[in-house]
Design a protein around this nucleic acid. Sequence first.
DNA 1: CGAACTATTGACTGCCATCAATTAGTGTGG
DNA 2: CCACACTAATTGATGGCAGTCAATAGTTCG
Lengths: 243, 243
Amino acid sequence: MLQLTQTPAAEAGACPQACEACSARPFSICHVLPHPDLRRLADGGAVKTFAPHTALVCEGEPAEHVFNITEGVVMLYRLLTDGRRQVLGFLLKGDFLGLTAGAAYDLGVEALTPVRVCRFPRPAFRRLLLETPQLEQELLSRASDELLAARAHLTLLGRKTAIERVCSFLLHLADRQARLGGSAELIELPMTRTDIADYLGLTPETVSRSLSMLKRLKAVLTVGTDAVRLLKREMLEDLAEAA
Amino acid sequence: MLQLTQTPAAEAGACPQACEACSARPFSICHVLPHPDLRRLADGGAVKTFAPHTALVCEGEPAEHVFNITEGVVMLYRLLTDGRRQVLGFLLKGDFLGLTAGAAYDLGVEALTPVRVCRFPRPAFRRLLLETPQLEQELLSRASDELLAARAHLTLLGRKTAIERVCSFLLHLADRQARLGGSAELIELPMTRTDIADYLGLTPETVSRSLSMLKRLKAVLTVGTDAVRLLKREMLEDLAEAA
DNA sequence: CGAACTATTGACTGCCATCAATTAGTGTGG
DNA sequence: CCACACTAATTGATGGCAGTCAATAGTTCG
């Protein structure tokens, strides 16, 4: 059904020499690894690329790999039987993907932009994990962060209004992009309105109406359809109502 | 404001000899520890009890302890500035509480029933964690599970209808109680309708109406106000619409 | 330049929230 | 033990925010 795009040249073992120069390294789990362990990790892995709208993994598939995003944006989602979709989050450069309790992926993962990842077979990663306490600590710390983010998202979905959700979303995205060295005012939106709606528990129409309202308030300015310029951060923060 | 109840007899060090007989042990993180490490853990900790409606920790307080629930039910929640509340989850016997990214608790925790916990100072727990890989693995595994549960909850809040939310909630609770050795049909509800509503992103009225509808369908039978007898599990599963 | 898709805007509907009244359950003191 | 007060739960009436349905505008790409 969904095809996996990959550069044939980027097969196993391409990572070690490139790791030092990797732009995602400072934001990735591998930054905790000293050189020998880094080499071991790299040897087990492979660089893969995915075109936009292709699946990194499908819900229900056996969980054979873990991923480190080194470039691009991916979307995590879950489907209900009747087709309703909940988008669980977006991963950016440096984010890790692979914590899963069971043997099968419990979510779908799709590339929104051209994506580059370091991909590792789960058994090899598991072995390295057992022998590398720093890596395990880093993972535990990231799991903590993810849990924190999930709780903020739960609060958003359970208790916030449409406009509050959209403002929270824009600010959250702005902060993450700024932390990666991007602009804190020009927010890139590589996802569609439908993706945003499924992330915020709304419809695309309501997302669009909320953005239009923010434009009317001169709080933001849309730049094409896939970027937003933040004009009045404070107004957004007020409209987002608390963390 | 909120008082902490504790048995004076149950101060530090009460745990080690009692650990072997602890009814929560098989469900707790400590079940992975061999005896010497168990003793070390126990020595650093203290048994505490909390009366219903008292706070184990308050949002914003410095995060000084981690907890293991050995008896009772506690509720996790987050508050918005204007008083809206999102209940994040309920912890039962054997559940661990303490994964937090920052220096302050990012959530409030309240006892719903008489609660007994093993409480450990965070620094001591952290030290033990660094020296006990099994414990760290167990925590990572639990963090994975929590993340999985959080994602299911996100899907519920973002995409399910009122009746679907209530059915999902009842089934989830039934399964957890059954796993702890309780009845799979008689579901205890130690929380109020308002607590349930704040967990499900609804109002107490809507929760009540949904339960009434399930009674009309003869899918459940309320037993007093704080228990529900499950009559037709399959009907609930259909109404809950997928996982 | 036209086809196909996505986003926006508008009109209307419906589910759940809100407001309100009644009932049930719980604890207390006479 | 029961009457009273208080709180929580249920049920009913109404309203509003966001969803649905529909039409238009804007983008992308062959």
